[in-house]
Design a protein around this nucleic acid. Sequence first.
DNA 1: AAGTCGGGGCA
DNA 2: TGCCCAGACTT
Length: 377
Amino acid sequence: MARRKTPSEPEAGELWKDEELARLQRSLLAWYYASRRDLPWRRTRDPYAIWLSEVMLQQTRVEAVIPYYERFLERFPDVATLASHPIESVLPYWSGLGYYRRIRNFHAAVCEVAESYGGAVPSDERFAELPGVGPYTQAAVRSIAFQVPVPLIDGNVERVLARLLLCRDEVKKASTQKSFHAFLERWLDRTRAGDFNQALMELGATVCTPRSPRCAACPLEASCRAHRFGAEEELPRLPERAPSVDEAWVVLVLRRGEEPGEVWLEPREERGLMQGLWEFPTWIGLERRELARALAATPSGAFALLRERGVEHAYELGRERHSILNRRIRAEILELPLPALTPKPTPEGRWVKLEQVAELPIGGFTKKVLRRLSDSG
DNA sequence: AAGTCGGGGCA
DNA sequence: TGCCCAGACTT
């Protein structure tokens, strides 16, 4: 009888014997207890803190999250504290971390927990109804903070399973996710779901890495089908990424007053990219050729662009590289002496004391420019 | 199912 | 320079 894919056909995972899954479960957990990293959110059992860590860790590396996590938790240690502060005073603690929608959703969700759940994070299915809580975060918080026996799938788990099962389908496809979920339902240690889930992610983060996986150190090596066929590096299959685009910025720094003085900042629109974040006036979208030509001139080719706009003098503060999503940005930062270009406070912008910039939400690039200003006095 | 949404570190 | 990270939401 010919093999054919039907919904009733056993999922790939069901080809594994219970006995082998039980053995792999034990070696994975043993490895985890012996090798896990000491991370801040592994030192707490507080659902709020664990939830915060999971939100920060979305699409963001552990090392990048740690300082933000500690600063945020110090300022907003619990549901009641966070819920009692407006989003405007919370946003600055996310400045530079990226994906700013996450903190807006988290704040809204925590407010809902304060109002509708008496401040107690719900451990049941209602948790998944909160804004910003998707399939991954729902399973992560419920299993890690409440020991609810639900499996989870993140980028690490996708990689480990694609290799272990030698799955050549795109891991993001709904059908692949479904078969991974079915496999995990069998493999999951239901008495220690939180540890099991973290073990799988930890393995993906530290051993079963995207490139050069350390198979010799892997507790699943003997059973890994990709390793058996030397196919580790080919997996997992991910959807194609949009090609990156070069972008050139000219960033204008306007200062006034005694050092450290004030700088002129403008808020981004309340829609689209980095909504509501404050930034220096910026000319964006110059052609690479145009900026290259401008930068090639002396002392700064961008001055030519300024002259076209009636500005005669400017100091070059330096150049900066930055990346936002698929954009690779090269920026030239210019300081314009007043009154070369003197803006008036409007709803679109205002003077901000340098010591008070930290109270405004800003992005990673603005942060880099500000660091330059304080470093150079 | 595809597009949007940050930023950084590493081979 | 390309890759991808403890994803969720909108269309």
